[in-house]
Amino acid sequence: MFSATQRLQNVFGHFTSVFLMLAAAIMLLSYTHWWLEDIWELPMSVRSVEPKILMKYSRRFGGSNNQGKENCKLKVDFDGDLTPLFNWNTKQLFVYLTAEYDGDRPDISNKVIFWDQIITDKKDAVLDYHNLASLYSVYDTTNSFNQRNATIRLEWNIQPYVGWLIYGETVIDGIKTINFPAVEGAKKRKTRSKK
């Protein structure tokens, strides 16, 4: 009845249930806290977004030697305070700037990340950027953005110490759409949709 394996099993079982209860308590309290803080309504003021298009001919930028690809980069000004996203269960905050735009057919939709930032300290959660260069040189599956309009969003993802991941976006005050410019000096190419 009271063998060594039995005792070991009991200790292990007890440890597991204590751990799971603790995790559940941390989760419940922190998620309530986030909910009370109204984290899905945080304002972000976007003052300027300047897109720039360049032709690229390497695979890293979606092109090839004989086929150029329009690559877009942004210069952005924005500020906002994301400190309410931090509490005792926030391991990291992933903030990212996205653009959503249409495709050649009505059923196509595209969404791309231009810039992102990992924030692990509450002190760094007050964002204020001037002339920030986007991290990524973004290209489409087709060869051109065709001077389309795109919707700009600043979204975030909370990675907790324990629990499920939370996603949300800020409420943008200011510039919400951009227009992909034409390539300067380049003649317009026929777009080719890629399989």
Binding site: R105, I108, N110, V112, I113, V138
Partner: peptide
């Protein structure tokens, strides 16, 4: 993490 999505009715890249 997913950085870009190009979706149609049939397919998502």
């Amino acid at each position: 993490r997913v950085m870009r999505s190009h979706a149609s009715d049939r397919k998502q890249l």
